[in-house]
Design a binder for these strands. Sequence first.
DNA 1: TGACAGTATCAGCACATGCTGATGTCAGTC
DNA 2: GACTGACATCAGCATGTGCTGATACTGTCA
Lengths: 104, 104
Amino acid sequence: MLMSVDTDLMRALGDPLRLRIVTLLAHETLCTTHLVAETGARQTNLSNHLRVLREAGVVETEPCGRFTYYRLRPEVLTGLSEGFAQLAGLARRTRADDRKRACP
Amino acid sequence: MLMSVDTDLMRALGDPLRLRIVTLLAHETLCTTHLVAETGARQTNLSNHLRVLREAGVVETEPCGRFTYYRLRPEVLTGLSEGFAQLAGLARRTRADDRKRACP
DNA sequence: TGACAGTATCAGCACATGCTGATGTCAGTC
DNA sequence: GACTGACATCAGCATGTGCTGATACTGTCA
């Protein structure tokens, strides 16, 4: 069956800074202070973006004293990857078979 | 090496109607008239969205008389899929090793 | 050539979104 | 308890984006 791609998830990842955050978190679990240092963005701005990623389910948080660690949820990315792979497979077959609807 | 995910491509796909269009085109090559019928959106609106998808390289056009067929480019979707798979792999390893930067 | 159908483009409006400074909250430290 | 640092939230502004009607362009057909 077709597993559709989540639009909200795509929008969450469709921002340069958020994609940067995700890439950083893919390599290392970090807290906001680290992300501020890495990206050069303001704390407020980053906090907003992190909220978007959190609500989209891309990241999860782990409080650690007065710090908050951000960690990626790999299964979400895997789901996206599989969704696009499936779409690509369909498209490839459609193209190979030259499947097109007749002009009306 | 890390093949980064294209932000513009993500933004292009981060819209419900455009994602709908992509899903439709994955199954069948269609022209604007078909897409209007399928989605219920106005022609102008659809044309705008198709331009976004075209500029992002997601679709390509094939003129056919006074019709214009839209076809998906599978390699773009495959690239996205691989990009996310790679990120997911990194994230999974980061999580497994509990790799985190020390609190500052 | 004139009429028409299929698309693309444009300008304008409404709304969403990103960035910022100010402020609030909570945990740890003195 | 007062203070400080880490982080979240809020309100405001600027900009971006989607939707629409109007219009232009292009190929087909009578």
